[in-house]
């Protein structure tokens, strides 16, 4: 990033993620199913991570020293696929095969079909443990890579997440970064309705021995600052609580539940594309 100013980087990310939002919605409508809401809430963070921070090699996705990114909330995978395609992992023309028979773009991430997915996820609550294992391997092997794991707010209702939070702290995994995409919605309702006691989430992670930072997950300056903060190795695992908006970027998709798991119709997609274009 040295040659590029922060302002330029933020402008580049803002432009790119508008296009990615349009592509994500097209992919899901083409597939006829998928999860628009959560894909649009995570795209800003994922794009920022892949375009400004991750040390990786799209031509060699299993490079032993790469940084790892585990998308534990696997249903947001269209956001990961569009990012991987833009980073050169595969041809963008493949994006429209999402969820089709024979496509490596499975409905949820699967490492055996796409190595860059790192692990099979989507059975919620499992990704942080796997990422923890990867971070522990780096400690055992004295490697310098970082492992990032992005989870949903609904997802962290799973008990396994807190088992992993507890032991990551025990092993002082300051090379492990969890991101909680707090978009406030889940299938059956808002977080406030379904599991209000999930808050205070910052205090929960702190109580488990993590360093926690809370940000606006759509503010690229804040995202980039949080990523830089997470790179400080202070002996504790790091958690970034990204407060986001489900369906962010398209007015009528911004809703806690309506577009959790429903593809846009063709008409809605056209409206969404028009709106994203105007936003420029």
């Amino acid at each position: 990033m040295s040659a590029t100013s922060r302002t330029e980087t933020v402008a580049m990310l803002a432009k790119m993620t508008r296009e990615m939002r349009a592509t994500i919605l097209s992919m899901i409508t083409q597939a006829g199913s998928g999860h628009p809401g959560g894909s649009l809430s995570v795209i800003d963070f994922i794009a920022a991570l892949f375009f400004t921070r991750l040390k990786h090699d799209p031509k060699n996705p299993t490079w032993a020293d790469r940084d790892r990114f585990v998308l534990s909330k696997g249903h947001a995978v269209p956001a990961l696929y569009v990012t991987l395609a833009k980073r050169g992992y595969f041809d963008e023309s493949q994006l429209m095969t999402l969820r089709q028979l024979g496509s490596p773009l499975q409905g949820h991430p699967v490492n055996r079909f796409m190595a860059a997915c790192e692990a099979p996820t989507g059975s919620l609550g499992q990704g942080l443990s796997v990422a923890h294992g990867m971070a522990l391997a780096a400690k055992l092997d004295k490697k310098s890579y970082t492992t990032f794991c992005l989870m949903g707010d609904g997802e962290i209702q799973e008990g396994q997440v807190w088992e992993a939070a507890m032991s990551a702290s025990k092993f002082a995994l300051d090379n492990l970064v969890a991101i909680v995409d707090w978009n406030g919605g889940q299938i059956d309702g808002s977080i406030t309705e379904v599991m209000p006691s999930l808050e205070p989430v910052v205090a929960k992670f702190e109580a488990f021995g993590w360093d926690v930072k809370e940000i606006d997950g759509h503010d690229f300056d804040a995202i980039l600052d949080s990523i830089a903060w997470a790179d400080e190795r202070g002996g504790k695992p790091k958690c970034i609580v990204a407060r986001t908006v489900k369906g962010k970027g398209v007015s009528f998709v911004e809703h806690p539940t309506k577009y959790h798991g429903a593809a846009l119709t063709k008409d809605e997609l056209a409206r969404a594309h028009a709106e994203l274009k105007e936003a420029k």
């Binding site: 692990a119 923890h132 294992g133 391997a137 088992e163």
Partner: peptide, 19 residues
Amino acid sequence: GIAEQNMLGVAAGLALSGK
């Protein structure tokens, strides 16, 4: 510790990193 599902997930992450 007494947390088997986390143990299994961590074991998987280690294995996916060459162990």
